[in-house]
Amino acid sequence: MGRRATAYCLILPSFLLAAFIILWPLKEIVNLALHDVNRFGLLRAFSGLANFRALFADPDFLAALWRTLVWTAGVVGGTLAVSVPVALMLNGDFYGRGIARVIVMLPWAVSLTMTAIVWRWALSGESGMLNSGLQGLGLIDGNIQWLAEAWTAFPMQVLIGVEASIPFTTTILLGGLSSVPDELYDAAAIEGAGAWDQFRFITLPLLRPFINIAVVLNTIYVFNSFPIIWATTQGGPANSTDILVTYLYKAGFRLGKLGEAAAVSLIMFGVLLVFTLIYVRLAMREEAA
């Protein structure tokens, strides 16, 4: 008991610091969300759930909410689908592996905003690199206006998101792969398991905890990710590529509706919290089983 009390005492200072850093802003945001707020953050009358009601009455908000889920699922799923094979390849022994690893990690060194701006230029309709590249390959005849409409812009944004998330995910998976003992593969090979079976029955199960952590972290990053969408389309044309965080930015800073913006951020917080709790619970149950 005494030992326990000491342990709690020792944690207490950092717990208080963390609580202050996390809970105080949360309290402020809840406060903003429940009030009528002017453009400069001055609280006026208490307005209950009026800000939330206004949001759910706005079709653009509902569309952005739905699009955020598609965006997150698309980027996280796409990243995983690319990163697992990339990590497997980089884990193998081949000439120039060091250089290959550096190349895969490089996008990580460039700020996300810069990546997005470079892509904005590359996707430009009349003078973009992508169009001239595709024409050079003879794949298209005329220029495609990538960012003019949501059905071409949004998939490209998801692809940029995937590109930006690969280095981080690959790093986590490489760490996981290096912890798989070689003996397991040797034993499996002797028993007659082919490459696919080795992957299914050895690599994938042992990699699972690493994949889980990659999914949770990526989901949190991507769900909140602002630069890619903002730098390429600012959520346009006509809000058709908005996700929650770009919607929030416009509501708060362009239109001066700080109360509604605070409400959006609370909703985002709630969605992420619920997702993380469910996912961690599921992942833990799997591991226990």
Binding site: S124, G125, E126, S127, N143, Q145, W146, L147, A148, E149, A153, T233, G236, P237
Partner: peptide
């Protein structure tokens, strides 16, 4: 007009003008 007008900001259109497009 240039195709895909909804992908051109003010700076983008000015650049097209500078390029003679």
């Amino acid at each position: 007009t240039q195709p895909g007008v909804t992908s051109y900001s003010r700076e983008d259109v000015q650049n097209l003008f500078k390029q003679g497009k």
